[in-house]
Design a protein around this nucleic acid. Sequence first.
DNA 1: CACCAGGTATACG
DNA 2: CGTATACATGGT
Length: 284
Amino acid sequence: MRILIADDFSLDKIAASGQCFRALPLGGGAFRFITGGHLLYIRPAGPDLSNAPGTFEASCTEEEWAAVWAPYFDLGRDYAAIRRAVPESDAWMHRAAVEGQGLRILRQDPWETLITFILSQRKSIPAIKASVELLCAACGRPLTGGSTGGAGQPVYAFPTPQALAGLSDTALAACKPGYRAPYLRAAAVRVISGEVDLAALARLDDSALLAALKGLYGVGEKVARCTALFGYGRLGLAPVDTWIEKVITRAYGGRDPFPGYGAAAGVVQQYAFFWALNHKAQLS
DNA sequence: CACCAGGTATACG
DNA sequence: CGTATACATGGT
């Protein structure tokens, strides 16, 4: 189907933004996305202006777009307005927002977000992606529809908590979680037991949500904030990782600018993170 | 071979 | 409270 997207929307930047780890560039501007049991192939239709409003060709039905993918890409929100609200007086952030035009905060599955960001700690983004794919191939449900991950390989859904918990120690270790393996297992066990109800956490306010997430073994402030931002749509929360720490130190003299952006802090943080990733030398 | 990667748990003052 | 250290593994 063909879809018109009027707001800031760059598949390229979203896929490279480090918030999701299974978005796959297929060449020619096309990308593959996966969420839950849903698989999407999407590409710009017609001349790709990248950032500007445009039409896209998507592999799903209109119903699936409306029910799954529009929420996933947070299409109900005006990101152009958020971007333009970054004032020129904040010169560093304004530049990052201009360069990051098209980024969006994906609304991902809370369980997948939690697990992938537990895995992310002290790993490079390519290493995270590799580990997540290994985990999906090890115990994710094969997605039907004749879809392939390239080279004729089947595509796997992200594993359920039960599937993850069912892996042997050696099978889990083969997914390269390193020292985070017990963190993953602990999260799966507590979700399976019902001690932690990830769906119910959506009703908590930001601070209660963060507290609940940080109660999990291996989940600290940063992973909790990433999970809240990318898995629960808490756009007011800005995770501080090593790159954002450098931004705060080098560009802001140690004064954290993100809380000042209020309900949009998480979006602005994503602009800053994206800029940092693409200009590493200028922050080191 | 050092050093770092979207950090956190733990031990210690 | 705060600071120091270990931690699996892959990449530069």
